[in-house]
Amino acid sequence: MAMIEIKDVSKWYGSFQVLTDCTTSVEKGEVIVVCGPSGSGKSTLIKTVNALEPVQKGDIFVDGVKVNDPKTNLPKLRARVGMVFQHFELFPHLTVRQNLSLAQTLVLGRAQREADERGLRYLDRVGLASHKDKFPGQLSGGQQQRVAIARALSMDPICMLFDEPTSALDPEMINEVLEVMQQLATEGMTMMVVTHEMGFANRVANRVIFMDAGHIVEDAPKAEFFGKPRSERAQQFLAKILHH
């Protein structure tokens, strides 16, 4: 059974169709990269996986649980799916330590002490242990994004979703975040990553999905995708992104 299963998913904003019959899956331990031009529906697709965006047609399963079923306990499901956003979305009124422990105590019912310990362990892993009492606003973008990853990991997720985690960062900070993600992949985390970092895709991804205008146009093993994409749109996209 796949960890993430997306079956024939379509979604509309009013009369505008954002997603058209999208089908793909992510196996346990697999890393897939989703790329495509701006507005092609990448963020929307990844947000349907933890039901931040509802879908009108099709089915989505995470670890066998149907996401778009009214009977599904969404908070419980989401607590098991880590998500990292383009703009970090740390809670600015809370310290780093509080950012890490909030959902652990509220959602998982962990004691404050246990939540702090676990949060700090992951903070240490992303190399920011000494910043635990700072506020997000006192950290650089790259540091904030690493805290956001630690925050997601503190919930012991069964898979991780990344929506352009480095595209809001200054170039010199991109690598520190990609390194953390690569490390995570090495440890066997199941990951779905929207990114235009083709170097990362080449090093880390098992498969690459290319989206255009709400369609999954290409869904191929990495070597195949970078070797010779079948669709013309993907070829053009790659040419543009690799040679700029």
Partner: peptide, 8 residues
């Protein structure tokens, strides 16, 4: 979104 994604 970040709150919901964490299960709140």
């Amino acid at each position: 979104w970040a709150g919901y994604a964490l299960g709140l």
